[in-house]
Design a protein around this nucleic acid. Structure first.
Length: 268
DNA sequence: AAGGAATGCAACCGCAGCGGA
DNA sequence: TTCCGCTGCGGTTGCATTCCT
């Protein structure tokens, strides 16, 4: 059973879009809205496949696109998001208003890779280039502060709930050198999104006034004053008796109840 | 000025995931 | 539960432009 072609290739144009095609597509979408890409070309009188129309609209014709060079702030944000999300360009694009995944992907490959390499940073691992690669990618991310990492690893080799925060390198070392590591050479630890757990926060702030608001995760990433910043509007922890709230962490605008699968991140 | 190399970016391709039948 | 169509995503390609010799 073969895949049916997305369009009848014999009767479709390929390559660069003409001004007239652009105008037809814009006019059609203005009237009928986005969606139904498969039937759109015929309805709009375009000799293009639906995928091509969608791509042209999303990457080039959409009115809310921000054209022009990337700013230094955008550069740094892309780097930070890439270090967290990997090549999830659509998710990264969702955090950069007016930018498309394709644009960011191209920009990454042409500019940022080089920029990181010139800083001596491996653009894939976000580590110094001379540091040996010991781990691979992970796709399951946990915000849970529970002490169940080893248990989970033993119980379910497919789902690694990584205990969060700054002790990660230690944890990684533990896992890397553990018998489990030998059993599961494909264990992937590279991509992790982990705000600090309450315990570690408490530990690292033992001598500080806990009545002060902690920095939210967005701020810890350097995305201060963004819409993801929880410092001022939603203090996660109000007092020592409110530990339960840590289980519901609003990361990048996403409420998490402990385990975050990156695929659930909603593009805005 | 010419032409080859490098770069940038728009567009294509194939696959995965989702949802409806 | 399975099948199938549609949409969206990420990797890759190819062309136009710029740079260098």
């Amino acid at each position: 059973m073969g895949r049916s072609p997305c369009c009848e290739k014999a009767h479709t144009n390929k390559g660069a879009w003409t001004k007239e095609e652009d105008e037809r597509l814009i006019a059609y979408i203005r009237t009928h809205g986005e969606g139904c890409w498969r039937s759109l070309p015929k309805a709009a009188g375009l000799l293009r496949c639906g995928k091509s129309c969608r791509l042209r609209w999303i990457n080039y014709l959409r009115p809310d696109l921000k054209r022009g060079n990337f700013t230094e702030e955008e550069d740094e944000l892309i780097i930070k998001l890439h270090s967290l999300l990997g090549n999830k360009w659509s998710l990264i694009a969702g955090r950069l208003p007016g930018r498309t995944d394709n644009e960011i992907k191209n920009y990454w490959n042409t500019h940022i890779r080089r920029k990181l390499l010139s800083r001596g940073i491996d653009p894939t691992t976000h580590r110094p280039v001379n540091e040996p690669r010991t781990t691979q990618k992970v796709t399951t991310i946990s915000f849970a502060a529970g002490d169940h990492k080893t248990k989970d690893i033993e119980e379910d080799h497919k789902m690694i709930n990584v205990k969060a925060e700054s002790g990660l390198s230690q944890l990684e070392d533990e896992i890397s050198s553990s018998p489990f590591r030998e059993q599961c050479p494909d264990l992937n630890l590279e991509l992790r999104i982990s705000p600090p757990s309450w315990q570690n926060y408490q530990q690292s702030h033992r001598d500080q006034d806990l009545r002060q608001s902690p920095r939210c995760f967005a701020c810890s990433l350097g995305i201060e004053n963004s819409k993801d910043c929880n410092c001022s509007k939603n203090n996660i922890i109000n007092n020592n008796n409110n530990l339960g709230n840590i289980a519901s962490y609003n990361f990048l605008g996403l409420k998490s109840n402990g385990v975050l699968d990156y695929r659930t991140l909603e593009t805005k």
